[in-house]
């Protein structure tokens, strides 16, 4: 029995807009275990962004419980949430969100700057290791504008890995990339997952979901499907089968 990284029970999130109350999440429960690669799917308005914000400790549920790595989040204040984000979660965004005019290395170092337990030397060493892991060992001094979209997303992945999080949270991480590059990125995710890293991936592309080992589908704030994927596609194989570009 592997460790439970995320445990959600009867999670509800309501927004009040004027006199109306919008029920974005209507009581959701699930558990993500260590080493899982979960995709959360759903059309827009299904509540997946709200769920992602809560999973990422950027937002708090109206009711229900949320535990990450054995920590109950219910009564934590803003600063404690920031610390959890800093130490337990690695974020990856659709639009990469790298700091402009800042080298890849410094971008990757960013989360560790907010962790006073990490020394300058250790910070640098860990950032270099993370960049090597995503295959950018030779691009460390490049700024985002000198990197391709795929490379920028790799920098972002390295940034999410640098704090040794219990879980990587990706929000449409391949949404801005072409098919080939997104398969490359997915193959990187699969590689990382095989090394034991837990990944939660929010997407609306079904082919991306086929690379994960579990898919949760949301609709109107409720889970309508929660399947284990028995025939996981290998992104590396898919990539090889793509017609070669003539360049």
């Amino acid at each position: 029995m592997s460790k439970e990284i995320i445990k959600i029970e009867d999670l509800k999130r309501e927004f009040t807009m004027g006199n109306e109350t919008v029920h974005a999440l209507k009581g959701i429960s699930f558990t993500i275990k260590e080493g899982e690669f979960v995709t959360i799917m759903g059309s827009s308005g299904s509540g997946k962004s709200t769920l992602l914000n809560i999973l990422g400790c950027l937002d708090r549920p109206t009711s229900g419980t949320y535990e990450i790595d054995g920590l109950k989040l219910k009564d934590l204040d803003k600063n404690a949430l920031a610390t959890i984000r800093n130490e337990k979660i690695g974020f990856i965004f659709q639009s990469y969100n790298l700091l402009a005019r800042t080298s890849a290395l410094e971008n990757v170092e960013l989360p560790l700057l907010y962790n006073s337990k990490v020394s300058t030397e250790e910070r640098r060493a860990r950032a270099i290791k993370a960049l090597e892991k995503v295959g950018l060992g030779d691009r460390m001094q490049h700024t985002p504008s000198q990197l391709s979209g795929g490379q920028q997303q790799r920098v972002a992945i390295a940034r999410s890995l640098v704090n040794n999080p219990v879980m990587i949270l990706a929000d449409e991480a391949t949404g801005n990339l072409d098919t080939r590059t997104s398969y490359e990125i997915m193959s990187l995710f699969q590689e990382l997952n095989q090394q034991g890293i837990t990944i939660t991936f929010v997407t609306h592309e079904p082919d991306i979901a086929s690379f994960s080992n579990r898919t949760i589908v949301l609709k109107d704030g409720s889970i309508i499907k929660d399947n284990l994927n028995h025939k996981i596609q290998s992104a590396a194989t898919e990539l090889a089968s793509l017609p070669t570009e003539d360049n």
């Binding site: 600063n79 610390t83 969100n97």
Partner: peptide
């Protein structure tokens, strides 16, 4: 603003 959001997402506190 976006950069501030990112800094907060990766663990920057309001006070930081």
């Amino acid at each position: 603003t976006k950069e501030i959001g990112l800094r907060m997402a990766v663990g920057g506190k309001g006070s930081d």
